[in-house]
Design a binder for these strands. Sequence first.
DNA 1: CTGCTGACTGGTA
DNA 2: GTACCAGCCAGCA
Length: 106
Amino acid sequence: MFRSRVLSVVRRIPAGRVATYGDVAATAGNARASRAVGNIMRDCRSHDVPCHRVVAAGGRLGGYGGNLELKRGLLRAEGVVVIGNAIRDFKTRRWVRATRTRHGDV
DNA sequence: CTGCTGACTGGTA
DNA sequence: GTACCAGCCAGCA
């Protein structure tokens, strides 16, 4: 199920790092399912999945069920510099699947 | 099966 | 920079 796969991907996002819905969708199997991913995230209230580490493209926070400030706080707490509704150095903060990166992703 | 929804994305104005 | 539009996808009624 796409949903389970998405949750797995999000779960693999290391703290202090963020991934876009598109990246998650791509890792899940469909790079175009970014929208569906967001839809799934909406239903993901489990703390097993750091949905707050999932952001929109361009480094924008995206949304968080209305508690966007909470998402911002969590990200900042993990070391992510958030400015307004965007992430500072997003390109360097962006996490991309570490399926085969046993070198340690920076 | 058809239609609607939405934490998306990229493009255009 | 912001605002609007069209495309694309999974989930649900």
